[in-house]
Nucleic acid binder design. Structure first.
Length: 458
RNA sequence: GGCGUGGUUGCCGAGUGGCUAGGCAGAGGUCUGCAAAAUCUCCCACACCGGUUCGAUUCCGGUCCACGCCUCCA
């Protein structure tokens, strides 16, 4: 809201309450959506890294124009229709190793709470029922409206875009708290003191965040496009109803672009997580790409970046393997893991500066390799380094330090590799090369490691 | 029209009033039977024009360009 970094001071010492606008479950989420959820996960993990006890709440919007429209098109009851996409969403979160939220409240399970909130607004005179029977929030009653998006209502484009069905509102900018039922809603309807209908989008988040995090909580996140009007409206409703501050810190992440363009179905650059997995990319590499760009900067998604991420992670995997295979005794390396950890912590504490944090991983990798090259890295140091990367991964969640890469190499390939080692010992280079070619036909490459060892890679 | 963000070396991407971020790609060297891996060196940039300053990529002003939001898209 202040548009500058601020020190985080929680409502309750030692804990952090965080509300995240979750998916509208009418389809599979796309990687742009997951950019936001990955950013929020990073924030969650960094707060935990700094010792906060994090309570994250992510809502599921399972009733709105789109869910109703598409469930009717599919000929399914709303709940049944959205269940499929909710399930898919959870699978996707798992693929991206996103820390589970404490609660995933669904809008349709909280209608009474929303009605209660709307009633409070009615009682206090902030809301009114229009001729169309819908309930609207009167923006004129909330002078601070626009303080989050820094929008001055006077200077906005006037209502060229008003739809016919919105003429009932007192003021163009007023937004719906309760939408009166109409034929397009089919059997989607709930009873309320104002007649049948369904809640407006904004009121969902206010009612649910209040229920699980309290009237004033620490952090609210979402994509930039949610800033206005969605979050602005949440503030208006919540602060009007409760008479106290709604949220202390707002963090919005920028959009994801594909090849420099906005992702859209018509441009054919629209990808779901599943699309990428089907192309053979790993969840870890996708996570790396989504994570490695600062949240307030537009992320330009490219397949080159994705391939590079795969390479980077593979290099780390090889590095971790090397750190496991060090000599027991060696000269002193003088490497101080605490130094790298401090840098990592400082970087993340500075408004989630991931680039600087990742640079620490690369620097440590280089320094450790250098020490190992000169025979100055004993296994004890290697273990300390591995421990540190395990710690780093508590935040990054994609290094898989202890994931064994030995995905069941066929016995015959291992056998060929052993034969090749023997040939090399005898300096029979012709046989060695022939065996290497043969191993290649199985899809593996051998690399020699000093000391008569070898490594097989797919 | 209003509000806002940003333009960094071939590409991606941090950061700072003077001190090589980092990654990828490229060139050369070391190591290795070869290859791979690893490592070293090189490639030293900050849109443009003014101003402030001993000194600006970093601060200020202006220009150009790109992008986002302005009612339900993360």
């Amino acid at each position: 809201m202040s548009r500058r970094p601020e020190e985080f001071i929680p409502v309750q010492a030692g804990s952090a309450g965080m509300y995240t606008c979750g998916p509208t479950v009418y389809n599979f989420a796309h990687i742009g959506n997951f950019r936001a959820y990955t950013f929020e996960d990073l924030l969650h993990r960094v707060l935990a890294w700094f010792g906060y006890d994090v309570t994250q709440v992510m809502n599921l919007t399972d009733v709105d124009d789109k869910t109703i429209r598409d469930s009717r098109k599919a000929g399914l009851p709303l709940k049944e229709f959205t269940r499929k996409y909710i399930q898919a969403f959870f699978e996707d979160l798992k693929t991206l190793n996103i820390t589970p939220s404490a609660v995933y409240p669904a809008a349709t399970d909280h209608i009474p709470e929303m009605i209660a909130l709307i009633q409070t607004l009615m009682d206090k005179g902030f809301a009114y029922q229009a001729e169309d029977k819908s309930i609207y929030f009167s923006i004129d009653k909330f002078p601070e409206y626009g303080k989050l998006a820094h929008i001055d209502r006077e200077n906005q484009i006037s209502g060229v875009r008003i739809k016919n069905d919105e003429y009932a509102k007192d003021s163009v900018a007023d937004f719906a708290l309760w939408k009166a039922w109409d034929a397009a809603d089919g059997d989607v309807r709930w009873e309320s003191p104002w007649g049948p209908g369904r809640p407006g989008w904004h009121v969902e988040c206010s009612a649910m965040s209040m229920k699980y995090l309290g009237k004033t909580f620490d952090i609210h996140t979402g994509g930039v496009d949610n800033m206005f009007p969605h979050h602005e409206d949440e503030i208006a409703q919540s602060e009007s109803a409760n008479g106290c501050r709604y949220v202390n810190y707002w963090l919005h992440c920028a959009h994801l672009m594909v090849n420099g363009e906005k992702m859209s179905k018509s441009a054919g650059n629209f990808f779901t997580l599943r699309d990428l997995l089907a192309k053979g990319y790993s969840g870890r590499a996708i996570r790396w790409v989504l994570l490695s760009c600062h949240y307030r900067k537009k992320l330009n998604f490219t397949f080159e970046a994705l391939a590079q991420a795969e390479d980077t992670l593979k290099k780390f995997a090889e590095f971790f393997q090397r750190m496991r295979e060090l000599p027991e005794t060696a000269a002193e390396s003088g490497l101080d893991p605490a130094k790298y950890e401090d840098e990592f912590t400082a970087a993340l504490g500075d408004d989630l500066n991931v680039s600087a944090a990742l640079a620490v991983l690369f620097n440590l990798q280089r320094d450790a390799n250098k020490a190992a090259d000169s025979g100055a890295l004993p296994q004890s140091d290697g273990n300390a380094i591995l421990d540190l990367y395990r710690k780093f991964d508590r935040v990054l969640g994609c290094l898989a330090v202890d994931e064994k890469n030995e995905e069941a190499v066929p016995a015959e390939v291992v056998d060929l590799a052993e034969q090749r080692i023997a040939a090399r010992k005898n300096k029979d280079w012709a046989a060695s090369d022939r065996l290497r070619d043969e191993i290649k036909t199985f899809g593996y490459t051998v690399e020699d490691i000093p000391g008569g060892w070898y490594r097989l890679k797919k």
